[in-house]
Simulated assay, not measured.
Amino acid sequence: MEKLSLQTENLELVPPAADDVDAVFAACQDPETQNWVPIPVPYLHEHAIEYVTTHTDKTWDEGTEYTWTIRSAGTLAGVVGLYRVGNGSADLGFWMDPAFRGQGLLTEACTAVLDFALAEAPAGLGLARIGWNAYAGNFGSARVAQKLGFHFEGTARLGAALRGQLRDDWAGSLLPGDDRTMQPWSILG
């Protein structure tokens, strides 16, 4: 698929490009991001270069991942994407630069990506299922998924690995016909 941008009321979602290297590198130094996102640690400048160029170009071309930088007033605020795209489904993933957390921007960005993912072609991908996963304890990610209307499916005990260590994994899903308002989740009370 050819790279495309998405627009919201307050944000521009743009595929990563070479001029994002320094901002991605800086954001990925955050200990919280490193604890919850499966990125290399230590996160080196070369990792950011590979991610915003080679990796992103390849996965857009192959149709296996669609990733966007989240830009607020022209500044990189985070990343959102559809991962493991295939067989009518994908997984939603995201992270935010610490300076932009807690402002509702991530929910706004994810809503635009979900609208695109669930819309029928040619306006969107026409996916039948969007999954969400987070390492257990990532309440920030869980709150965003809950606000987006994801249905909590449970905890896979030691169901995911991060840097060679097994961790419990929370899972949720969203189908095209689901009510996309906030859902009750037992883990969030």
Rank of each mutant, 00 (worst) to 15 (best):
M1R: 00
M1V: 10
L6E: 05
L6C: 09
E12P: 04
E12G: 12
P15G: 05
P16V: 07
A17T: 14
A18R: 12
D19P: 01
D22L: 00
V24M: 09
A26K: 08
A27P: 00
A27Y: 04
A27S: 04
D30A: 07
Q34I: 06
Q34N: 10
W36G: 02
W36V: 05
P38Q: 13
P38M: 07
L44G: 00
H45W: 13
Y51L: 07
H55G: 11
H55T: 05
T56K: 14
E65G: 10
T67P: 05
T67E: 15
W68D: 07
W68T: 00
S72M: 15
A73Q: 15
G74I: 06
G78R: 01
G81I: 11
L82I: 08
R84P: 05
R84N: 10
A90D: 08
D91F: 14
F94A: 01
F100V: 06
T107L: 12
T111R: 10
A117Q: 02
L118S: 02
A123S: 15
G126H: 01
A128V: 15
W132L: 00
W132Q: 03
A134H: 08
Y135T: 13
A136N: 02
G137A: 01
N138Q: 05
G140M: 09
R143C: 01
K147P: 02
H151N: 13
G154H: 00
L158S: 14
A160R: 14
A160V: 02
A161Q: 15
G164H: 07
Q165V: 13
L166E: 10
R167Q: 03
R167S: 08
S173Y: 04
L174E: 08
L175E: 04
G177P: 08
G177Q: 06
